[in-house]
């Protein structure tokens, strides 16, 4: 993959099999990496490219992971950190499929309401936090139970 950084070209080795996560908002690559788990433990190879030029986004980050395909839950989390991200699935050095992520309209049990008196924060109550998508840009969710909003920063810090 060639990634353009101003007038220079950065060469990043291609992967044989795995996933390229493109169109990550600039500065969020490390957050995306955290969603995948610790590469030291899981043993997969990773390439991070940050702050490269993008026609669509101005600046963007890219994460390439060898030998890893994201689970549905990871894709859902990814959509909350990088709502415009594109997934490129690579087999034998070829992109065999592409998928755009999009923030789910409802997120159950993944985010925590920041309102200390919301019913979803009560200990010992069998209630799952439920957030409804309120805005895609900026990414905003609203607690179904108390109406409190979660903004991009809170969402991003919670899903990592």
């Amino acid at each position: 993959m060639d990634s353009h950084t101003g007038n220079e070209t950065m060469i990043v080795q291609r992967i044989a099999n795995g996933t390229v996560i493109d169109h990550i908002p600039s500065g969020k690559a490390l957050a995306v990496l955290k969603l995948l788990g610790d590469p030291h433990i899981k043993g997969f190879r990773v390439a991070l490219v940050m702050n490269v030029s993008s026609k669509k986004m101005g600046k963007k980050d890219i994460v390439k992971v060898e030998g890893v395909e994201l689970s549905d839950e990871q894709v859902q989390r990814l959509a909350l950190v990088a709502p415009q991200a594109t997934l490129n699935f690579v087999r034998s050095y070829q992109v065999v499929a592409k998928r755009n992520v999009s923030p789910p309209s409802v997120v159950v049990g993944l985010l925590k309401c920041v309102n200390p008196t919301c019913i979803t924060g009560k200990q010992r109550e069998p209630v799952y936090s439920t957030f409804l998508l309120s805005s895609q840009a900026p990414l905003t969710y609203v607690c179904r139970y108390c109406g409190r909003e979660l903004g991009e920063y809170e969402i991003s810090s919670q899903v990592q």
Partner: peptide
């Protein structure tokens, strides 16, 4: 009636 927001919905 409950002091927690969302209690009635729950």
């Amino acid at each position: 009636r409950h002091p927690s927001e969302g209690a009635a919905l729950f």
